[in-house]
Design a protein around this nucleic acid. Structure first.
Length: 531
DNA sequence: GCCAACTTGG
């Protein structure tokens, strides 16, 4: 629509004030084209023609365009807020995952005397669903009942999800029964509820009772089995589907990926393409993860090509998946190139590139990116520090690693978790500072896991320390998580020290347990997926 | 103009 661009400056030049109807029409036109900036300009230029609907439209557009700050500022400035304005604000707070804000906003709304409607209550319920505020679900239910919304399909489905998340199956069934006119969505919510409760049998039974089923019903069932780690059950439901859409394919593909079945995921992706369905950004980021999982650069590149050809708009998550795929498949330069070209980066993107450099042994590059990220005001999280510490370990940067470990708690308030300790043990261990590693383990406030002990054992293998190596092996045995690498490392140390009787004993034990010598690899990387 | 059922990255 090129005319709009010509008409609007014309109108603005020749008429001082637009009528409310025209302002509304023009603003909606800009928003439809994704041009929020000009919509806002018109809004600012016509203060006297604005009505509540126009305010609400702009605020909602900001939220949908991921500009919550602008939305919030405008909401704060707004003179006469109606229930829609409050609902819009609530859904914005929900979108940025601020359940406390949702709760406080709701209270504020009540204080100015506005009565919630169905929209308000379903936003409330779904906003607290996965948070500590979900203890409020029964209270909100009480409000729902007192206002007579319990027969509403929307509110009912939200309540069912809420109750499933707090594990209340009785309430789940009761809410369903109370919905006066149930539609497919209500039934889907019931299936989903039982799946969330982990009761796949009941979900399947309900599915069989449904008066009608749509693609979403089938997909919910497939996804429910996947969420309950029943991949093959999911697949057999998937195979029985008469109609599939991108989401159905994506659910199944990402289900395989989540369960580490990368090859199955890739096979299914090929079937999908052959069926004539084109993947979207959800599909392709899962597929890229599968490529990364099998370290298949060849396939990864082909998927990259598919991304470019499909014309899917730029997406942070998809681009981050590309960065991660290239880094995990060994092409760190390509990874960095994509990372650099990303117009929007978030914490996960930074973590990916830092982890990529760490995995490639480019400790200094990893740390450079870490500094750059902090300068841009992005707060590192616990994953960032796993990557940073492992970069220090791989780069032999012991003192820097110690400093970062310290700053993690003091500067960023992130409590060291067991994986951070594992990195530190690895850091000291590789550098041959075995006493420091031992000291760290002994002073840990947490129970060391197999990765921590493994890092120590590996270091003992590297530096031929029999005594400490035995200590580490005992630690692993106490966890009852024997691992073939443990025996081969012990074997190596014993052999080097010339303790041949022990070597024979160990070989016997290995044979008993069916352990075979494995190729060397870091337990830290395989267990925590550094990167 | 606002709400709800299935899918994505470290």
């Amino acid at each position: 629509m090129g005319t709009l661009d010509k008409v609007v400056p014309f109108i603005s030049r020749h008429i001082y004030t637009l009528s409310t109807a025209n302002l509304n029409r023009l603003i909606n036109g800009y928003i439809r084209k994704g041009n929020l900036r000009d919509a806002r300009k018109l809004f600012d230029q016509n203060p006297t023609s604005r009505n509540t609907v126009i305010w609400n439209t702009i605020i909602s557009a900001y939220i949908q365009n991921d500009e919550p700050h602008n939305a919030q500022n405008l909401f704060d400035e707004m003179p006469d807020r109606d229930i829609v304005s409050w609902n819009t604000a609530l859904s914005g707070l929900k979108k940025i995952k601020n359940p406390e804000g949702v709760y406080l906003c709701f209270l504020k709304m009540r204080r100015v005397g506005l009565k919630p409607n169905e929209f308000t209550l379903s936003i409330m319920i779904s906003a607290i669903l996965d948070t500590v505020f979900n203890v409020l679900t029964p209270q909100i239910h009480a409000v729902v009942v007192s206002l007579g919304f319990n027969s509403s399909v929307f509110v009912g489905s939200a309540l069912m999800r809420g109750y499933a998340h707090v594990g209340d199956r009785v309430a789940l069934g009761r809410v369903f029964d109370e919905i006066s006119i149930k539609n497919v969505a209500s039934w889907n919510a019931l299936v989903l509820g039982y799946m969330d409760l982990g009761d796949t049998d009941e979900a399947q039974r309900v599915f069989g009772l449904m008066p009608e089923r749509n693609v979403v019903s089938w997909t919910t069932l497939v996804n429910g089995y996947i969420g309950n780690k029943k991949t093959s059950a999911a697949r057999s439901v998937f195979d029985r589907m008469t109609e599939r859409n991108v989401v159905s394919w994506t659910v199944m593909i990402s289900g395989y990926v989540q369960n580490g079945k990368f090859v199955d995921a890739l096979r299914l992706f090929l079937l999908m393409l052959r069926s004539g369905t084109q993947g979207n950004h959800f599909t392709l980021s899962s597929v890229l993860e599968a490529c990364a999982g099998c370290s298949s650069l060849l396939l990864g590149k082909q998927v990259h090509l598919n991304v470019l050809k499909s014309g899917i708009p730029d997406d942070v998550i998809l681009s981050t998946s590309l960065v991660d795929m290239y880094a995990k498949c060994g092409d760190i330069e390509a990874a960095f190139c994509i990372f650099q070209s990303m117009p929007k980066k978030n914490l996960v993107s930074w973590n990916s590139i830092i982890g990529g450099y760490a995995r490639h042994g480019l400790g200094t590059r990893a740390l450079e990116e870490f500094e750059r990220m902090k300068r841009l005001g992005i707060r590192p999280d616990h994953v960032t520090f796993v990557n940073v510490l492992s970069a220090c370990a791989h780069g032999g940067l012991v003192e820097q690693g110690e400093r970062e470990f310290y700053s993690m708690e003091t500067e960023f308030g992130i409590q060291a978790a067991v994986e951070h300790y594992a990195c530190m043990v690895d850091l000291f261990g590789r550098a041959g500072q075995l006493e420091k590693a031992e000291e760290l383990i002994k002073g840990m406030p947490l129970e060391p896991d197999v990765v921590v002990w493994g890092a120590l054992l590996g270091a003992c293998g590297l530096h031929s320390n029999l005594e400490l190596g035995t200590f580490a092996a005992d630690g692993i045995r106490r966890l009852e998580q024997d691992h073939p690498v443990m025996y081969s490392t012990l074997l190596k140390i014993h052999g080097e020290k010339g303790v041949w009787t022990s070597v024979l004993e160990l070989k016997k034990k290995m044979k008993e347990q069916g352990a075979r010598k494995q190729t060397a690899g870091s337990w830290i990387e395989s267990s925590y997926g550094v990167g």
